[in-house]
C-alpha cells in the first residue's frame, strides 16, 4: 500500500478545530434528536398498546410510514419538499428566516424517524408486562392513566432498556446522514479534511475511534442505568 501517513495533520490548525466542531455537532444533533425520539416514541408506543382499534391504526400508520422510507430520503423530504408544500409564508420562513435550517431539519427528521423505532420497543415492553398487573391495577381502582404511570410503564421501561440501548447507539450513527443536507457533523468534517489534505485515512481513523468511544460510553451508561433500576429479585433479562 502506497500511502504516506501523516498523523500530524490531525493536530494542525484548522483540522483539529474541524474535528472538534464535528464531534460537538454529532453530539448536539444526536442528543436533541434522542430527546424528541424518546418522548414522542414513548407516547406513540403507549397509544399503540391501547385496545382502541382507531388508535392502533393511527400509531401503526406512523410506525410503518417512518420505518419503511430510508432516513436519507426522509431528510430530503423535510428539507426540500415540506417547505414547498406548506402555505407560502410558512415555506418562505422555513427556507429564509429559520436559523440553521439544515441542523434543525436534521434533528427533527432523525427524531421523528427514531421515534417510530422506539415506539415499537415501548409497545413491546408494555405487552411484555404480565397481564395480571394491568388487571390488578384496575381492580385497585387506578384510572387508565394511573395504571400506565404507576404500574405498567415503570415495568415496561425496565424491560426495554437493552433494546433502547441499541436504538440510542443507532441515533449517533444515523446522525452522519445529516451530512447529505449540509450539516457539518463528524463524518462530514473527516470528508472535508480528506478533500483538503488528501490525508483521509488519518481523519477517518480519528472519526472511527470517536464513534467507538461514543458507543462504549452509551453502552456503559445504559448498563449502569439497567443495574440501578433493576427490581431486586426480578431479573430484567429473561
Amino acid at each position: 500500500m502506497n500511502y504516506a501517513w501523516n498523523w500530524g495533520v490531525l493536530v494542525q490548525p484548522p483540522y483539529l478545530e474541524w474535528l472538534g466542531q464535528g464531534i460537538a455537532m454529532t453530539l448536539a444533533v444526536s442528543i436533541a434528536a434522542g430527546i424528541i425520539a424518546l418522548s414522542l416514541g414513548t407516547l406513540i408506543g403507549i397509544f399503540h398498546s391501547s385496545t382502541s382499534g382507531a388508535m392502533r391504526l393511527v400509531t401503526g400508520s406512523y410506525i410503518n410510514l417512518f420505518r419503511n422510507v430510508p432516513l436519507l430520503l426522509q431528510m430530503f423530504l423535510w428539507f426540500f419538499v415540506v417547505p414547498e408544500l406548506l402555505p407560502k409564508a410558512a415555506g418562505t420562513w422555513l427556507k429564509r428566516e429559520l436559523p440553521n435550517p439544515e441542523i434543525i431539519t436534521a434533528i427533527v427528521a432523525l427524531g421523528l424517524f427514531t421515534a417510530s423505532r422506539i415506539a415499537v420497543q415501548v409497545a413491546a415492553g408494555i405487552a411484555a408486562v404480565p397481564g395480571g398487573q394491568s388487571m390488578a391495577a384496575r381492580a385497585s381502582g387506578l384510572s387508565t392513566v394511573q395504571a400506565y404511570r404507576l404500574v405498567l410503564l415503570p415495568q415496561a421501561f425496565r424491560i426495554v432498556v437493552p433494546p433502547l440501548t441499541s436504538e440510542f447507539l443507532t441515533i449517533f450513527k444515523n446522525s452522519s446522514i445529516a451530512l447529505t443536507i449540509g450539516v457539518y457533523e463528524l463524518t462530514a468534517r473527516t470528508q472535508q479534511i480528506q478533500s483538503f489534505t488528501y490525508q483521509g485515512f488519518e481523519a477517518f481513523t480519528a472519526a472511527t475511534v470517536v464513534y467507538m468511544v461514543i458507543a462504549l460510553t452509551v453502552t456503559t451508561l445504559m448498563t449502569v442505568i439497567e443495574r440501578r433500576v433493576a427490581i431486586p429479585g426480578q431479573s430484567a433479562r429473561v
Binding site: S176, G200, F201, A215
Partner: peptide, 24 residues
C-alpha cells in the same frame, strides 16, 4: 463490534478511498 459502532457512511468513505489504494 467494530463495524456495529461506526456509521455506514463512514464505512463507505473508508472503502471508497482504501480499496483503490490497496489494489494500486
Amino acid at each position: 463490534n467494530g463495524f456495529r459502532a461506526v456509521p455506514l457512511i463512514l464505512v463507505i468513505f473508508w472503502f471508497y478511498f482504501l480499496v483503490p489504494l490497496l489494489l494500486g
